[in-house]
Design a protein around this nucleic acid. Structure first.
Lengths: 128, 128
DNA sequence: ATACACCTTAGAGTTTGCTCCAAGTCAATG
DNA sequence: CATTGACTTGGAGCAAACTCTAAGGTGTAT
């Protein structure tokens, strides 16, 4: 699969994909004889993972570290496991903050919807 | 309340608080005669909201827009309501991605934990 | 074989959101 | 009233994560 096809599939730019490979967020991609990237299923799996974890706020650095450990072979299995657990902790922590924000938003929106109907904007405490 | 006290309360730096005020993420803060910031309860409410929504990934620009609308008075109530709904949509979208990442992580971690015990690292499909 | 679209690299530039610095002001204490 | 420490501003600097540019190579359709 060409870089363009991968980009369309995952809605990402070629620049970003090349950047990910350059810095080590994904391992080096398979190439044609002419040097053009030709993504295999395995390559795509790495891409998919990178996109998924990035979209959950996992920093580039952590992804690079995981790939680095992976490439060092089986003796890094425990380290990789720990890295994933730490990552999970961070994502769960972040998600908690999202939930709190959503609660706040829901409260505000309910007040605003009432205000739009009645013309009266009332807050329990602080007017914001 | 002085800037320092507010910073301690919300675990944020004075630079960030001043930055928020400068760009309009929070409205102008109450000052002493000498020009020193003296945060009222109302000011603190804005600070708390800014921190909460920022931690859920709401962009600075959206927060500025909200404050701008707020300062224009009651005729912007509907616009503010819409902005909050759009924000909620985005945060819920982002949270979905967090959940997907967490599922992936849980699967990987379970495989790794087995590998740590048995020495065998097995994947359903792609080895990653 | 010659366009033509698409690919390559190295390296510079951009955006977002802070973070730091210098030079000066304010206020509490001895 | 002098010292000390926290506060002020404007503006520069920085880190993360892309994003763009220039100059050139690849591959395929006519």
């Amino acid at each position: 699969m060409t870089i363009k096809e991968v980009c369309e599939k995952y809605d990402i730019t070629p620049d970003t994909l090349r950047y990910y490979e350059r810095v080590g967020v994904i391992p080096e991609v398979t190439r044609t004889a002419g040097g053009i990237r030709n993504y295999t299923e395995k390559d795509m799996g790495w891409v998919q993972n990178a996109i998924c974890f990035r979209s959950a706020g996992m920093p580039i650095e952590a992804l690079i570290e995981y790939v680095r450990l992976f490439q060092q072979g089986d003796e890094t299995i425990e380290a990789r496991c720990q890295l994933l657990k730490d990552t999970r902790e961070q994502i769960m922590e972040a998600r908690k903050k999202y939930d709190i924000a959503l609660q706040k938003l829901n409260y505000k929106i309910s007040r605003y919807e009432e205000a739009v109907k009645t013309g009266i904007l009332s807050w329990e405490e602080e007017p914001k």
